[in-house]
C-alpha cells in the first residue's frame, strides 16, 4: 500500500471515530428527515415530491456541515496542538498530507450521501431513477467544494473554541437561510431575497431541481464557483499575512 492510500485511510478512520461527526452528519439529518416526513404533518400539496425534496435538503445539510466543521476545526486543532509542525518534520510531503485529508473527506461525503439516500429510499420508498440518484449524489459531492474552502478558511483561526463557535453559527445560518430546514418558498420575502445570494441555497437548489426532473441552473453553478474562489483567495491572503509575522 502506498503512503497516500495509508494516510487517506487513517484520515477516514479519524473522521468516523469522531462522535460529533457521527451525530451531526449522520444521526441528526436522518432524525430530522424522519421527523418532518413521517411524524409531523407538513400539509404539503404533493407529499411524494416533498419527501424527495427534503431528502436532498438533509443530505446537503449533512455534507455542508462536515465540510465546514470537521475540516476547519481539525485544522485549527492540529495547528494549535503542535501536530501540524510535527508532521512537517517527517518525510511525509505536505502535498500528500493535504491530498489525503481531501480524499479522506470526500470518501466520507460519499459515505454520508449513500447512507442518507439509502435511509430515505427505505423509509419513504423514494423512487428516483438511477440516473437521478447518481446525478444528485454527484452534485452534492462536488457542490461541497465551496464549503470545504470555507472550512479551510475557518481552519486558519487560532483557537479551537473560536473556530467551533463561529463555524456552528455560520453553519446554522447557512442551513436556515438556504432553505435546508423549511422549503424556501414558505420563508418570508426578506429571508428569500437574502437567501438567494447564499451558497447554501444554490447548493440545495441544484439537488432540488434534479429530483424534480430538471437540472441545476448556470446561476447555481456560477454562484458556487464564485464563493469557492472568494473563500480560497481570502484564505490565501490571510495565510500570507500570518506567515509574515
Amino acid at each position: 500500500m502506498n503512503v497516500l492510500q495509508k494516510q487517506s485511510i487513517a484520515e477516514m478512520k479519524r473522521v468516523l471515530r469522531n462522535k460529533y461527526f457521527v451525530l451531526w452528519s449522520l444521526i441528526m439529518p436522518i432524525a430530522f428527515y424522519y421527523f418532518f416526513t413521517n411524524v409531523v404533518n407538513t400539509n404539503v400539496p404533493d407529499q411524494r415530491a416533498w419527501e424527495a425534496h427534503y431528502l436532498m435538503s438533509m443530505t446537503v445539510f449533512s455534507v455542508m456541515g462536515s465540510s465546514i466543521m470537521t475540516l476547519g476545526i481539525r485544522m485549527v486543532q492540529e495547528r494549535s496542538q503542535g501536530w501540524a509542525a510535527f508532521i512537517r518534520l517527517t518525510p511525509l510531503p505536505d502535498h500528500i498530507y493535504l491530498s489525503a485529508q481531501m480524499i479522506g473527506q470526500s470518501v466520507i461525503h460519499v459515505l454520508s450521501i449513500t447512507v442518507i439516500f439509502l435511509f430515505g429510499a427505505i423509509i419513504n420508498d423514494i423512487a428516483l431513477s438511477p440516473f437521478e440518484w447518481m446525478m444528485s449524489g454527484l452534485w452534492i459531492l462536488f457542490g461541497a467544494l465551496p464549503f470545504l474552502a470555507l472550512g479551510t478558511l475557518i481552519g486558519l483561526m487560532r483557537k479551537v473554541e473560536t473556530a467551533a463557535g463561529i463555524s456552528n453559527v455560520l453553519y446554522m445560518l447557512l442551513a436556515l437561510g438556504g432553505g435546508m430546514w423549511m422549503p424556501f418558498e414558505v420563508m418570508p420575502d426578506m429571508m428569500q431575497s437574502i437567501g438567494q445570494w447564499l451558497p447554501s441555497y444554490h447548493f440545495g437548489s441544484g439537488a432540488w431541481e434534479l429530483v424534480r426532473g430538471g437540472s441545476p441552473t448556470w446561476k447555481n453553478i456560477l454562484i458556487l464557483i464564485a464563493y469557492m474562489m472568494l473563500f480560497m483567495l481570502l484564505s490565501k491572503y490571510i495565510r500570507r499575512k500570518q506567515e509574515a509575522v
Binding site: 503512503v3 479519524r14 469522531n18 492540529e78 496542538q81 503542535g82 501536530w83 509542525a85 517527517t90 518525510p91
Partner: peptide, 22 residues
Amino acid sequence: LQEVSVMPGLKVDEILELFRSY
C-alpha cells in the same frame, strides 16, 4: 517536541504503523 498532542482518533499502534510507512 514539547507539548505535542498526537492526532486524535487513532490508536497508538495505528499511528506507529502510519509513521513507519513514512
